[in-house]
Amino acid sequence: MGSTKREQYQPSQLRCAQLSDAMGHPARIAILEHLNSHFRANSRELIRVTRLSKSTVSQHLKELLDSKLFLEGFDDFSNIHYYCLNPNAGAMMEEVVDRVFGRC
C-alpha cells in the first residue's frame, strides 16, 4: 500500500484517522479496557493480559502513546514505568464519532 498524501487532508481529519487507527486492533482494545478497569499497569502486566510478546506489546503501546489515548509515567518509589488511560480518551473518541457521523 502506498503512503498517504497527508497534505490534502485537514488536521482534524488526520487526527480522527490517527485515533481510529489506534483503536483498530483487538490487542489495543484489550489494553485500553484493562487500563480503564485498573488505574495503571506496567508493560509486564500488559504482556500477561494480552498474551503477546514483549516486542508486540511494545509496538501497540507506541501506537497508543502516539495517539495520546493513554499516558506513561514513572513511579520513583517502586522504580516502575507504568501506563494509564488518558482522562480525556473517551471525549477524544466521541469527537471522532461526532465528526464522522455528523452529530456536531
Rank of each mutant, 00 (worst) to 15 (best):
E63P: 05
G90R: 15
H34G: 10
V49G: 06
R40Y: 13
D75M: 09
R99A: 13
A89W: 05
R44P: 05
F77V: 03
D76A: 13
S58H: 12
D76M: 07
P26D: 05
F77Y: 07
S55L: 05
Q18R: 08
S37G: 13
S43E: 01
R48D: 08
S58N: 12
D21M: 09
L52E: 01
L85I: 09
C84S: 12
C84I: 01
K5Q: 09
S55D: 10
L19G: 04
F74Y: 12
S78R: 06
R6S: 14
D98V: 04
L64C: 02
L71K: 05
V100A: 07
D98T: 06
F74P: 03
R15L: 14
F77I: 07
E95M: 08
S78I: 10
R40L: 11
N88Q: 15
H25L: 02
P26N: 11
S12T: 07
G24S: 13
Y83M: 07
H60A: 02
E94V: 15
V97C: 07
L64E: 01
Y82H: 03
N42T: 01
M23P: 01
N79L: 02
C104S: 12
K54R: 11
D75P: 00
E33S: 12
A41T: 01
S55H: 01
I29R: 09
E7Y: 15
G24W: 14
K62E: 15
T50M: 04
P11V: 10
K68L: 15
Y9I: 00
T56A: 12
L46F: 08
T4S: 13
L61V: 09
P87H: 15
E94A: 15
H25T: 01
C104A: 06
E94G: 07
E95L: 08
M1I: 07
A30I: 06
Q8E: 15
S55P: 12
Y82I: 05
S58L: 02
Y83C: 07
I47M: 10
A30D: 00
M23N: 02
V100R: 00
R44N: 08
I47D: 00
V96T: 11
P87Q: 15
R99F: 12
H34D: 05
S37C: 14
K68R: 08
H25Y: 14
M1H: 09
L61E: 01
Y83V: 02
E45H: 05
P87L: 15
Y82Q: 01
C84D: 09
G90F: 12
P87C: 15
D76P: 12
L69T: 03
S53R: 03
R103A: 13
H60L: 05
L32D: 00
I80K: 05
S20P: 08
H25V: 04
R48V: 08
H38F: 14
R44F: 14
R99I: 12
D76K: 13
V97D: 03
I31F: 11
K62F: 12
A30W: 09
S55Q: 06
E33A: 13
Q13D: 10
Q13F: 06
F70G: 03
S20N: 06
R103H: 11
I80M: 03
L64I: 04
F77W: 03
C104H: 04
P87D: 15
L52M: 10
S55N: 06
V57R: 04
L85K: 12
Y9Q: 06
N36L: 14
R103Y: 11
E72F: 03
E33L: 15
K54A: 07
Q8H: 13
N88P: 00
H60C: 04
M92H: 03
H34W: 08
H81L: 02
V97T: 11
I80P: 00
Y83G: 04
